Simulated scan of single mutants.
Amino acid sequence: MSYLLRSWQGAVALLLCLLALTQLPLLGPEAPLPVGSGATSVILLLIAGGALASFLPIPSAALAAILFVAAHGAAWLLIGSVDGNEGHAGSAFFLLVAASWLLGWRCITVLADIEPNGRAAETVLRLLIPAIFGAWILILWEAGTRGAGVPFILLPPPSAIGERIGNSLPILAADVRQTIFKAVLFGYVVGCAAGFAVAILADRVTFLRRGVLPIANLMSALPIIGVAPIMVMWFGFDWQSKAAVVIVMTFFPMLVNTIAGLGAAGAMERDLMRSYASDYWQTLVKLRLPAAMPFVFNALKINSTLALIGAIVAEFFGTPIVGMGFRISTEIGRMNVDMVWAEIAVAAVIGSVFYGVVALAERATTFWHPSNRGG
């Protein structure tokens, strides 16, 4: 009984499949390109087969493979049926999309319950599960916008955004080079390094610590839309002004987190260092900085997203005719929404990779920390 309860997605998917049979065809009578009965039959068989398989005593890996093929095969055929028929999808179409999504959900659940055998299998599962989850966000987005005929100007489907990315690679590469490899990286390195150095200095000088922290909390609350135009006036329209905005945005999170981390070492450990006649710098290097590393990496991860946001928003207030923020602001004025979404998608991917690199560095550096020893 517990297995049947855990397989409720299959039961609901089968119910939706039966309900869709009463609502056929997939498209309305006014659709310019009718869908053949063969394609509809394959979709129904895939969903019904996947739903029934979820109740059988099949090994988890095999069941996950069956559900994966059934869910994604049906979704691919359903999206193909509305290609050229945007806005003409009937209720059967949306019922079958929902049934396919439930099979995809069940596939993820089965994969999450698998006990990996070895490091390689664990890595594959940790990558596969979020990949399937993310793919279904795109599938539902594509099916919803095409099936319901959402106006392109409001929300283009992912396929249109992907096509725009493929056709605009030189433009996107130039924008990434201007925004990421110039403004973001330079500002991130300088801002984080300056915040870390000032935190060490403030930790050493009590007077400075008591004066810097309140000001840091105040400055961290400054709105970027107020700082960005001032930096453009001070440093010009090129990437230097955007790097200055990134420095301002990344300096204070690093400062506050590092100061907090330097105070994380326990009193017993400090007493032990004093009993060894360690001076300030020896205690700092051998005890307090290692204890502060989780706080420092927390600031680095926060700043990895803040830097990207700061540089893009700063480009709204003045930039040469290149850059991700410049492209977003100009293309939205021309109603080229797919290009705007292409820039957003590229920024999201770069930001995720940036964050992931910092997270991997944290895992390699602070492997001894309890937050990393379990996973």
Results as ranks from 00 to 15, higher is better:
206 T>E: 14
206 T>Y: 13
206 T>N: 14
209 R>N: 12
210 R>A: 03
210 R>G: 10
211 G>Q: 05
213 L>H: 10
215 I>D: 04
216 A>G: 11
217 N>R: 14
218 L>A: 08
218 L>M: 11
220 S>M: 11
221 A>W: 07
221 A>P: 02
222 L>F: 09
222 L>K: 01
223 P>L: 05
223 P>N: 03
224 I>P: 00
225 I>H: 07
225 I>T: 13
225 I>P: 13
225 I>D: 10
226 G>D: 05
227 V>C: 02
228 A>Y: 06
229 P>F: 02
229 P>A: 01
231 M>D: 01
234 W>P: 02
234 W>M: 13
234 W>H: 03
235 F>Y: 05
235 F>D: 09
235 F>G: 03
236 G>F: 03
236 G>S: 09
236 G>I: 08
237 F>P: 00
238 D>P: 00
239 W>Y: 08
242 K>M: 06
242 K>N: 07
242 K>Y: 10
243 A>V: 07
243 A>E: 08
243 A>R: 05
246 V>C: 12
246 V>P: 15
247 I>T: 09
247 I>V: 15
248 V>S: 08
249 M>V: 05
250 T>A: 15
251 F>L: 15
251 F>V: 07
253 P>C: 13
254 M>P: 09
254 M>T: 12
256 V>G: 05
257 N>Q: 11
257 N>G: 07
259 I>Y: 04
259 I>M: 13
260 A>I: 02
261 G>M: 07
261 G>A: 05
263 G>N: 09
264 A>H: 12
266 G>E: 12
267 A>P: 14
268 M>F: 01
269 E>A: 12
274 R>H: 10
275 S>V: 07
275 S>F: 08
276 Y>S: 09
276 Y>N: 07
277 A>T: 14
278 S>N: 12
279 D>L: 06
280 Y>T: 04
280 Y>D: 10
282 Q>R: 14
282 Q>P: 00
283 T>I: 01
283 T>R: 10
285 V>T: 13
285 V>I: 13
286 K>Q: 13
287 L>I: 11
291 A>H: 08
292 A>N: 11
293 M>L: 15
295 F>M: 08
296 V>F: 14
296 V>S: 04
299 A>S: 14
299 A>M: 03
301 K>P: 00
301 K>D: 01
304 S>G: 05
304 S>C: 07
305 T>N: 06
305 T>H: 03
307 A>C: 04
308 L>E: 03
308 L>I: 15
309 I>M: 14
309 I>V: 15
310 G>E: 08
313 V>Q: 06
313 V>G: 04
318 G>L: 03
318 G>Q: 09
319 T>H: 04
319 T>E: 00
320 P>H: 10
321 I>Y: 02
322 V>G: 00
322 V>C: 00
323 G>L: 06
325 G>H: 02
325 G>S: 04
325 G>R: 04
328 I>N: 07
329 S>H: 03
330 T>F: 03
332 I>E: 12
334 R>G: 02
334 R>S: 04
335 M>T: 09
336 N>G: 00
337 V>Q: 00
338 D>N: 12
338 D>L: 01
338 D>G: 09
340 V>T: 03
